[in-house]
Amino acid sequence: MRRFFARNAPAYVFLLPWLIGFFLLALGPILASLYLSFTRYDMVSAPRWIGWGNYEYMFTRDRRFWKALQVTFTYVALAVPARLIMALGVAMLLDKGLRTIGLYRAIFYLPSLLGSSIAIAILWRQLFAADGVVNQVLAMVGIQGASWITDPDTSLFTIVVLAMWQFGSPMLIFLAGLRGIPRDLYEAAEIDGTPRWRQFTRITLPLLAPVIFFNLVLQTIDSFKTFSSAFIISNGTGAPADSLLFYTVYLFNEAFKFFRMGYASALAWFLLVIIATFTAIAFFTSKYWVHYENERD
């Protein structure tokens, strides 16, 4: 017992703030929302237990739920790779040698600063309108553009473009990761005459793996939970024709617009299961491609 204590005490001391926060502040609301997912709760009157009713309705009768899933999965499949490749590519360009790197880094991060403000919503609607700047540029090279944002077939892509444009956060994390790779490794490789792309696959990728892994997991989680951009651009409705009905937008409307907090909680817990599954897969496979310096031997 005493040995158990001696072995664990330092770790638990460091973990203490988190433990307090989790058990005293976070856990209660999380369990409450799990409970609410089994109730009918309009936020004014007391919640009423209805068993699996919400989940049953979700899978058997709710067409918009399936639509929301479809929109969200499409978005995740497009936005996560697009954003990560963009971020990694730019980070590598910036990592080496340029004296003006600080300036570029700041410029590339700026769009992420604008976040999902109302300004972005207005701007995006103007940029991608039928007579907007994007189409004017396309017209110069002879392409007749669509009315991107109001056409249900293309509106989702404008949100993907927005996600790509705001690649600042993963870029910064990649940069921090690249900075952690010892320069002498590259110098040694240079002396050995190793070509650049092999330096990339032999040195950069393996040593950056933990950071790539982090960005992949986080971007996936975040993309499944994407809310603000779709919400503001579609004026909170998921329009046109539900093509921007992201899962969390649907969830928010069910909860706060239509007073179905119980149902929204059920939606949330199902999303949690989806995200957790993907994250678990990522963690499981990471054994094969992510190696940490300290766990090498």
Partner: peptide, 15 residues
């Protein structure tokens, strides 16, 4: 008005 301006739902009055 053009159909593409119509399907923006609840645009602010400024639009």
């Amino acid at each position: 008005r053009d159909k593409n301006k119509t399907v923006i739902l609840d645009p602010p009055i400024a639009e």
